[in-house]
Computed example of a mutant assay.
Amino acid sequence: MNQTVIQKHAWNEDFWQNPWDQGGLIVICVFIATVLFLILLATVFGLVDQLEMDRCEEE
């Protein structure tokens, strides 16, 4: 049991020492953040457009 924990800890240390793994993790995080940001923009501009259409119909 204790040896398994040591092996996982060693693997975790190896992961963070490898710059390619860190770069891959950064790319994945940036991609996810970009997708979420685009969804947020689409939602905001969709609501703004709908509010403007409602105002035009009232006048």
Rank of each mutant, 00 (worst) to 15 (best):
N18F: 03
V35Y: 01
G46H: 00
E58K: 11
V5D: 10
I32R: 02
E13Y: 07
Q22V: 15
K8L: 14
E58N: 03
D49Y: 04
W16G: 08
N18W: 00
V30K: 06
G23T: 01
G23C: 05
M1G: 11
Q17V: 05
T43P: 06
L51M: 08
Q3A: 15
M1N: 10
W20E: 15
W11P: 01
F37K: 00
R55M: 13
D54A: 09
N18I: 04
Q50S: 15
D21W: 12
T4S: 11
N12H: 06
F15M: 07
I39F: 02
L40N: 05
L41D: 08
Q3P: 00
I6A: 13
N12G: 11
N18V: 00
T34C: 05
Q22N: 11
E58D: 09
Q50C: 07
N2T: 12
D21N: 09
P19I: 03
I28E: 03
T43A: 09
W11Y: 15
L47D: 01
N12W: 12
F31M: 09
V5Q: 12
F45N: 05
I32L: 11
I6Y: 07
L41F: 02
V48A: 13
F45P: 03
G46E: 03
Q17L: 11
T43Y: 15
G23R: 06
G23E: 13
E57D: 13
I32E: 05
Q7R: 15
V5R: 09
E52F: 15
H9V: 14
M53E: 14
V27Y: 02
E13A: 14
F37P: 02
T34K: 04
T43E: 03
Q17T: 06
I28H: 02
V44R: 04
L38C: 03
F37N: 00
D49N: 14
G23S: 08
V30E: 05
L51I: 10
P19C: 07
I39Y: 08
E58W: 03
